[in-house]
Simulated scan of single mutants.
Amino acid sequence: MIELKELSKVFDTGKGSLKAVDDVSLSISSGEIFGIIGYSGAGKSTLIRLLNGLEKPTSGSVTISGQNISASKGQDLRKARQKVSMIFQHFNLLWSRTVKENIEFPLEIAGVPKSKRNARVLELVELVGLAGRENAYPSQLSGGQKQRVGIARALANDPEVLLCDEATSALDPQTTDSILELLVDINKRLGLTIVLITHEMHVIRKICHRVAVMEGGRVVELGDVLTVFQAPQQEITKRFVAQVTDTEDSNETIKHLRELYPTGELVKLIFVGDQTEQPILTKLIRKYPVDINIVHGNISHTQRGAYGTLIIQIKGTQPEIAQALAFLNEESIQTEVMA
């Protein structure tokens, strides 16, 4: 569906050249929700602009549905862009137009007859949950409603790809979740391929099938979201995963417990998928003469299944603790003794 090959983008600045995207190669399947995460300056915004032809690569190529976007010009590029829509962090609505008029704007530009425009707008208003608000102006809408208008407008020309540029960054957590749920619903109903960029791992966890982690213009880690949560390889990825799996309170608790209980081991357990529903600790306590103290626990749900972390203190003799850890490993529970 989307193929990036050795993609690079260099900007000339007054102080020299800046490589914003550095030799990126990856494939995105049709119907996939693909996340690109990175901190400011990682190159993710430039990458998404390369996807819709707003930027031309210095080298490499962008191919969408068999068409080389990076080499297209004029009418061919305009046609290609109709199949690649985009929603933005700050909505970019026309404030002098109603909800209905904002949604039908791209259809006007495309020369769609008024009768067909009206039918399409009503369909999209229903799809994004704005029935009854067709005649409202942006100033009369909440942030979440404005983003729903932006999504409906982006879907007007029946695109194959929807690009989301920090689409929930300006929203509160509850509204963010409702917009993410809408994107998942649209993905399932329409089979739409969605590519989103963000600096929030919560967004990736909530809706993405796969994720690319960017740093310094390069993709430093790429994989299924559940796999990345289970075993992040790069330090930057570990920091992102910690956004939704660790808390300062747990770190303080661990420090406090180390002071109170100098014996035993503090162990972090990682559960994936069906493991999160199994009584592993009950089995452990029944089988071995160890004491278990639960310090901190958290379960996150991804599109591919659940991911849970549990920090426990195991008290007993060293042989007993070793047997307990061996049992957990036999049960395919990933363990990490916390130093």
Rank of each mutant, 00 (worst) to 15 (best):
G223F: 02
T309A: 01
Q147S: 01
V195R: 02
Q323M: 10
L26E: 04
Y39F: 13
R286M: 06
G217P: 04
H256N: 08
V290N: 11
S250W: 12
P113C: 09
L266A: 01
V337Q: 04
F229R: 02
V21I: 11
L93F: 04
Y39N: 15
T168Q: 10
V272E: 01
R81G: 02
W95C: 01
S27M: 07
G217T: 06
K188Q: 14
G66D: 04
I321C: 00
Q233T: 15
E265G: 01
E320D: 04
T98D: 00
I292E: 03
P138E: 04
S300N: 14
V62L: 14
T317Q: 07
L226T: 13
R81M: 01
L310D: 08
A110T: 11
D249G: 03
S27T: 11
S115R: 15
T193D: 00
R218G: 01
Q243M: 15
E336M: 11
E166M: 12
L155F: 10
I254H: 03
S72N: 07
F271L: 12
I285N: 07
V267W: 05
Q145G: 00
G31E: 01
A42F: 07
P138D: 05
K114G: 02
E330C: 08
M1D: 07
G191R: 15
T302P: 00
L328Y: 04
E108M: 07
D177F: 14
H202V: 15
P106T: 10
D246A: 10
D177Y: 12
G132D: 01
H90T: 03
E101L: 15
G60L: 13
G216S: 10
I194P: 05
Q243I: 14
E277T: 15
M338Q: 10
Q89I: 06
G129I: 12
F271C: 03
P319W: 13
A212Y: 13
E101V: 15
E32R: 14
Q233L: 15
S30M: 06
L190R: 12
M1I: 07
P173R: 14
L122G: 07
D165T: 05
G223M: 02
F88A: 08
A80N: 09
V220K: 06
K44M: 04
T98G: 01
Y307C: 02
T13N: 07
A306R: 15
V112G: 02
I321N: 02
P232D: 08
I48H: 11
V225E: 00
G264I: 10
A136D: 12
I294F: 08
T253W: 13
E160L: 11
V220C: 05
R218H: 11
Q323R: 12
K9Q: 09
K114F: 11
R304S: 13
A322T: 15
K116A: 12
L47K: 10
A231H: 10
V211Y: 09
G14C: 00
E252I: 15
E32V: 14
R81C: 03
G31Q: 06
N298F: 09
T263R: 15
L26N: 08
A20E: 06
E123D: 13
G150D: 01
A167K: 13
A306M: 13
L94E: 00
L190F: 06
V213C: 08
A322R: 11
S61E: 12
F271T: 06
K283N: 11
K287Q: 15
R97V: 13
D177W: 14
I87E: 04
T227Y: 10
E104V: 09
V220W: 08
